[in-house]
Simulated scan of single mutants.
Amino acid sequence: MSKLIGRTVALFAGIALVYSALPAMSADQIVIGFSQASSNSAHRNTMTKRNQSYAAENFKDVKLVVTNAEGKSAKQISDVESLMVQGMKVLMISAQDSAAIAPTIKQVMAAGIPVVTLERSLDTPVTLHVGPHNKPIGKLAGKFIVEKLGGKGNVVEIKGDPAVAPAVERHDGFAEAIAGTAIKVIAETHADWDQEKALKFMEDTLQRFPAGQIQAVFTHNDNMAFGALRAIQAAGRAKEGILIIGIDGENAAIRSVDKGDLTATFTYSTVAPEGVIAAHALATKDTAALEKLGTLTKKPDGSMEIEIASNMITKANATQFFCKGFGDDPECK
């Protein structure tokens, strides 16, 4: 505890020192900090770019300062502390490690700076969380598999990074949906949202379980779904009709669902431009702007949440979602 207090005192002393050395800013300028977890996926990059573009085009009173933790929790802590020094009025953050960043977020909140979490919730109270609900998505994926397989079959689950809420919640929802059925998870791993890790794991799993022993693969994002698909196709086992379900609603995944390679995906908002709109609304105390983003829920601890709905995409409705996702798609202008 004494170390934490000492670190906090040192941080605020540093903030005061640097503030005195910073050039004067316009009194009307709103500095919004955006701490991004990484830039190793289309989802992350789209979140960053769309928020930046919207702020530049619509909020002339905003200076949006973006940092990239590069997948490292220690760097994200340092990034947030640096944003405090730069005088941010609101913090937007998508956490790399929910537990690791929590003490720093407590310091930000204690300094009276509103915090907006984007699609990755934290266990510590923040001002506002914006994003889809992950457990219901996992539950819908599980119910879909149960229905498609008639309540019986073997499933491989390829999970995301266990350090963040989406992976935990998607798994919990999925497990809840298949409980009490004859659906069995015969192999599982944390591939940390990475396609190559998912590919390697699926290659090994296909060798362990010969033809006819795997009926479905549930992956926590589309990137890993493509890894599983590549392994299945390379092994010559696509003809088995193994169901492959992903999450995110990438444009490429939606096309793949329509083609019949992937079985289903779920839209998962990049919270862009909703993130910067919410941050600007908090900075300007514009409650009406928050309410326009979605259903605004106020919690007993004083924090707020705006849920962004998710949609299941199958071959039956894939064409309705063409070019409405994110990521590369040559047919989208």
Rank of each mutant, 00 (worst) to 15 (best):
M25P: 08
L149H: 10
I158G: 02
P330Q: 03
K259P: 06
N221C: 03
A289V: 13
K148Y: 06
Q207A: 14
A264F: 05
P300E: 08
V31Q: 08
V115I: 06
A141V: 02
H220S: 13
G325Y: 03
K143A: 15
A231N: 10
E147K: 14
L22G: 07
V217T: 09
G294E: 02
N223L: 12
A16D: 15
F266T: 00
G6M: 03
I183G: 07
K106A: 15
V90H: 02
P300V: 10
D301L: 05
R7Y: 08
C323K: 02
S39M: 14
D261M: 12
R255C: 07
S98F: 03
Y268M: 06
I277T: 06
T189L: 05
G150A: 11
G241M: 07
G294T: 01
N51W: 06
F144I: 01
G33E: 04
R120E: 06
Q320I: 09
V276Y: 04
D192A: 11
K184N: 12
G236V: 02
S26W: 03
N223R: 11
M312I: 14
V276G: 01
M1Q: 11
V18D: 11
V9G: 12
M1S: 14
R120Q: 10
G241Y: 05
A216P: 11
P330W: 01
Q233W: 07
Q76M: 13
S310T: 11
T284P: 00
L229P: 00
S26D: 14
M109Y: 03
G246C: 10
Q195F: 01
D328A: 15
P210W: 05
P132V: 08
P132N: 10
F144H: 14
G260A: 05
V18I: 15
T127H: 01
E240Y: 11
G236S: 07
M84W: 02
I254Q: 09
N317D: 07
E81W: 11
T127I: 09
N251L: 01
G246L: 03
A177H: 09
A318S: 15
T267S: 13
A95F: 00
I313A: 07
T189Y: 08
N45D: 11
L206D: 05
G212E: 01
V185M: 06
D28R: 12
I308K: 15
G236Y: 07
F322M: 14
G160C: 09
M304W: 12
S2Y: 12
G173M: 02
I145Y: 12
V85N: 10
E331W: 12
I313V: 10
S78E: 15
K135Y: 10
S73C: 07
I186N: 05
P273Y: 08
G260C: 07
A175T: 07
A37G: 06
S98Y: 04
